[in-house]
Computed example of a mutant assay.
Amino acid sequence: MNPSLKLILILIISLEISFKPNLWANLILIGGALIYLIFHHLSWREFLLILFFPLLGAIAIFSALYFFAPDHNLIYAWTLFTRLYVFVFLGACLTLTTTAGKLARSLEQNLHLPSKFTYGCLAALNLLPKMKAEVIRIHYAAQMRGTSLSFWSPRLYFKATLVALAWAENINQGMLAHGYRENASRSIIKPILLTKKDWLLFLGVLILVQPILFIL
């Protein structure tokens, strides 16, 4: 499916399950998302990460609703427990099957988002590994001066912000040097097509989900 339609579909389903508590619908959506991910070669490491990453938050939600709420509604507690996993599995259906670059290009070409948004997102994503290395370098530099910068230290984030501002200016100059102009028309090297098959899949899945949410 086209990345933009996939994103819109996930947002619509997530919004619907936010207003419609339905335990069985949550379980069916989790199962469907899992089958989709397995079809796209989901690894055991990714599956365990999806399973255990939201577990603490899901347990907190379940405990608050079942042990501390006045009515001790077990069904509603399980409903919100599984709802969190629906959000996580639906997000995984997008992030694990679509690259950030392809999604950004699809948003630019198919939804006509401004090119500055697309290239800004791509630049930020490409800088994440370098920013991680820069934070480690700041840690080491501080330790050499006898100072320990903790994860929550304001000095650490201040230094990282200064580095990011310097990089932003360099990126701006680099894009201008390569001929980028904000309002100028640009050629498309990698076209992201929006076909009838994508629309049929989008509408088919959306229509299929409605009776699961509102009738089951």
Rank of each mutant, 00 (worst) to 15 (best):
R45T: 14
E46M: 02
W44Q: 09
F81M: 06
W44Y: 10
I59K: 11
L49N: 14
F47T: 01
D71P: 07
L51P: 06
N73K: 08
L65V: 05
I59A: 10
W78T: 01
P54Y: 00
D71N: 10
F68W: 07
H41E: 12
F53S: 13
W78L: 15
D71S: 11
F81G: 03
F68K: 02
F52I: 09
I61S: 05
F81H: 05
A58P: 01
A58H: 10
Y76P: 05
G57A: 15
I59V: 14
Y76C: 07
F53M: 14
H41W: 11
I61P: 01
P70Q: 03
H41N: 14
F67Y: 14
L42S: 12
Y76N: 09
A60E: 11
S63V: 15
Y76F: 15
F52P: 05
F62W: 08
L42G: 03
A77V: 07
I50T: 02
L80S: 03
A69Q: 09
L55M: 07
F67R: 04
F81W: 08
Y66P: 01
I75R: 09
Y66E: 05
N73Y: 08
F62L: 02
F52W: 03
L56E: 14
A64E: 07
L51Q: 00
L42E: 14
A58N: 07
A77F: 03
A60Q: 11
L56Q: 13
E46I: 04
Y76V: 08
I61W: 03
L55E: 06
F53T: 14
Y66S: 00
I59E: 05
L56Y: 15
F62K: 05
P70D: 02
W78A: 04
L56M: 14
A77G: 08
I50F: 03
L49G: 12
W78K: 01
I50H: 09
F62C: 06
W44A: 10
L65I: 12
A64M: 11
F62P: 01
L55D: 12
I50G: 10
A60Y: 10
N73G: 00
S43P: 03
L74I: 10
A60L: 14
Y66A: 00
N73I: 08
G57S: 12
W44S: 10
A58M: 03
P54D: 09
A58K: 04
P54V: 04
I50V: 09
Y76T: 04
F47A: 01
H41G: 07
I61K: 04
T79D: 01
L56F: 15
I59M: 13
